[in-house]
Design a protein around this nucleic acid. Structure first.
Lengths: 198, 198
DNA sequence: TTGGGTTTATGATTCAAATCATAAGCCTTC
DNA sequence: GAAGGCTTATGATTTGAATCATAAACCCAA
């Protein structure tokens, strides 16, 4: 997260994207740094048979899609506004200038990437493990601890549909529904008026 | 990759690890920057039923295990020497000093993390896709293009056992054996004296 | 060169998640 | 407030990778 003032100083523009708009697509060249001002943006892939995989969901003050700015690769996924969203975007060249002239911001950026890598490392090993209930608990625990910074049992109200949980874990809706019920029975999570608490 | 001279200047030490040695374990606090001088190191997880998942394999001049140095989290995986290996390691504090005083090195580091993130994003979506043959092709293509920088059909001799491919993709050996044979039949890869070429 | 360990190979069987089908609850919005 | 679209729910069936079993090929090391 980079301060809005600084981004505006370097030529950042705030743009509004209605719900459902695509900000960029898998395979495109990265031209901008993006940071959410309001609303929510998801990054996702669709595989051959149309099944969605959600790489991440980004809310206020979070940045996304930076790796290709550094790594000289194409976008590995699409970005789409989950709700009407304001996003500040800054041209790659100006973004790199900003980092060069503000080492502290650069370090913060590196930390952000490192955290994301940590999350992906967990997810990739967990998803490979094949156990639906584990996959679900892991992602919920990650969101609870690292995104929402919550402690204590059932303090985290999961604001995701079963379908979104499925797309984050690579499972199917029905499997998520059955697994969450089973997990509730085991006391691992609570379900109150259809919402999952962890 | 940071130059050896620079690492030594900042107090880096070259340490030899015999094949099979663990450099660090999942859950431990990160204390050092690591870079392979010679040999090979893998990072891996073992899940509950003992199945291995290989996060990555790092060879000469590649660094590994940096994210926790930045992100203030525990290691998400173990590191183990695949062959007798020399590794240069540098204390976290000195590593951070090095980056602070050498912005170009810091940028290179950021690029490394960004590339790894790109790889993980591909793998996590691909692994979630469930199709063994796709998983295998994707990881081979990644290794071919981004690690070994090779072009043209069947120029990449895969120096991995079927078991290692299985551990990288989250599949089982038998499945990898059957899938590679099927892929050979389809002309997607070649098998010469048990070695896979892509 | 022999013997033990790893790697590749292949068939038979099991099993759990995907798929298919159907429906009820709920939540916009027109 | 009715209609239609999401979301959750649940049962029946299919399917393909995991598992189990066994063996051949290869590779070292003693």
């Amino acid at each position: 997260m980079i301060s809005l003032d600084l981004l505006l100083d370097f030529g950042g523009k705030i743009i509004t994207y209605p719900k459902g708009t695509q900000l960029f697509r898998e395979g495109e060249t990265a031209l901008n740094y993006y940071q959410v001002v309001s609303g929510e943006v998801k990054m996702n892939n669709y595989n051959l048979d149309g099944k969605e995989f959600i790489q991440g969901i980004f809310a206020s003050s979070q940045s996304f899609g930076e790796p290709p700015l550094f790594a000289d690769v194409k976008y590995p996924a699409n970005a789409e506004a989950l709700s009407d969203s304001e996003v500040i975007q800054l041209h790659k060249s100006q973004f790199l200038e900003l980092l060069a002239s503000h080492p502290d911001v650069h370090l913060k950026m590196t930390i952000t990437l490192a955290k994301r890598l940590f999350y992906k490392a967990i997810m990739v090993s967990e998803i490979s493990s094949q156990e639906p209930e584990h996959r679900i608990l892991r992602i919920l625990d990650y969101l609870k601890k690292h995104v929402h910074k919550l402690e204590g049992p059932f303090t985290f109200k999961v604001d995701l549909t079963r379908q979104q949980i499925a797309d984050l874990t690579g499972l199917r809706v029905e499997t998520v529904i059955r697994a969450t019920k089973s997990l509730e029975k085991k006391g691992e999570l609570k379900i109150k008026s259809r919402k999952v608490y962890r």
